[in-house]
Computed example of a mutant assay.
Amino acid sequence: MNFSRKNIKRQQCEAVVGAQCGSAVLRGAHVYTPGIVSASSFMKAGDVISVYSDIKGKCKKGAREFDGTKIFLGNGISTLSRKEIFSGLPRLRGIGIRMTEPIYLSPSFDNVLPSYLFLQNLPSAVVTHVLNPQPGEKILDLCAAPGGKTTHIAALMHDQGEVIALDKIANKVEKIKQNALLLGLNSIKAFCFDGTKALKLDEIEDTEGTPPFSPESFDRILLDAPCSGMGQRPNMACTWTLKEVTSYQPLQRKLFPVAVQLLKPGGTLVYSTCTVTLEENEEQVAWALSTFPCLQLQPQEPQIGGEGMMGAGLSGEQLRQLQRFDPSTTPLRDTDLETLRDARAEDMIRLANKDCIGFFIAKFLKWKSTSEKDPQK
């Protein structure tokens, strides 16, 4: 939860960072050297400098000043001189500016009890509780990287059972394995594999728990689908195109039949995204219910977010069974620390819901076996 700091004195010495780096600073990070795009010509190590984000990507690497559109992020202390930053030496990849007066009081949790804590947004933690994994079960996280929800699933199961994590990008799979190792979770098996191909379509013998998998192999499945990511915040640059946004619904509809067929009768399927579009959320739920008669929409526990959005043809009862986190629908008023000290638990939940990322959750029960007919045909 972020609290804005006002009246920070801006310094004559300036540095400009890229939009991605700027978003990380707003979340509590320091500025790492590769993220610095521009720095004042007289900047040296130990200087107090003002940090700005180039949200349109117009600043040239190595510029001495930048007069384009930029957002103030706060003040920090440079650990390097301008000459060192732009020397091109590959070893300079550590912290370039240590933030001392960020505009938001959002503390960094990097290296804070790393084997005990894993930082997550509120909805990301809620979705795993909605899945409700139980010890001894076989769980599939179909699009798992970087592994926050995967490790949460294993923790809720007390590391008893089997958690299969799939992602088609190799370095992201390695990140899942690293997180599992760091947290001491032995029930997780991560594979570099395309989730759309995770269903075994022939009678080849099982290959010791590696993908692809036979139909009805899993007790619960989390489909945290690739999406347009419009709920991610803070975000310093809006670079989505219509083509990019509309490309996700077909991909989600390729993953969904795989998840349904891999799920055992009586099993739970949770579909989630970190976006706020109707097309990727409520429309997908309506499509799934009409395409797969074996699925029934279920109420969720805990229910912290709001209900679903109208416009996809779902009933009022169905909308109430969905969970949508959308901070844009309820503006967050200025809040100070004194107010929070006297807040009730319900008020804190309401405040957290307003100040979190945009997110969507739907929970399904597979009440009967999937038809042998391919639902995609």
Rank of each mutant, 00 (worst) to 15 (best):
Q20H: 12
N353H: 06
G68F: 08
E14F: 10
S4Q: 11
S106I: 05
I361Q: 06
A190S: 15
S187P: 13
T69I: 13
L278T: 01
I103N: 08
L113N: 11
M310D: 04
E101Q: 15
S81G: 15
P226F: 14
F193A: 06
S87C: 12
A180T: 02
E174I: 07
G266M: 12
K254P: 02
I164N: 02
R333T: 09
I176N: 01
Q321L: 07
E216M: 09
L278W: 03
M99I: 15
A155R: 09
I71D: 01
V130R: 01
E346F: 05
P211L: 06
K9E: 15
K264F: 05
N75H: 03
K56S: 09
F325D: 01
R341E: 13
A288D: 04
F42Q: 10
E84M: 14
N171G: 00
T329H: 01
Q11K: 15
A165N: 06
L332R: 07
E279V: 05
G184D: 05
G161F: 02
I49H: 01
K6E: 10
V285W: 10
H158D: 08
S217K: 13
S23K: 09
P250I: 12
G88E: 11
K175H: 02
Y271I: 08
Q261P: 00
H158A: 13
W367T: 06
M309W: 05
P90Q: 05
T239H: 11
D159W: 03
S369Y: 00
P211C: 04
Q284G: 10
Y52G: 04
Q12C: 08
Y248H: 12
F325G: 02
T268P: 03
I153E: 00
D326R: 12
D326T: 03
F86D: 07
E346S: 14
L332P: 00
I221Y: 03
L255G: 01
N132A: 15
R341V: 12
F86V: 09
T151V: 14
P226Q: 11
Q321H: 10
N186F: 03
G96S: 09
T79A: 09
P146S: 04
E101T: 04
P250R: 08
F325I: 05
A259K: 04
E338M: 12
R91Q: 12
N281M: 12
L117V: 13
A343P: 10
G148N: 14
N235E: 14
D141C: 07
K254F: 03
T207A: 11
L181G: 00
L242V: 05
L365Y: 04
R220V: 11
I169P: 00
G316V: 06
T150L: 03
A352V: 04
L297V: 10
V51Q: 03
A29L: 08
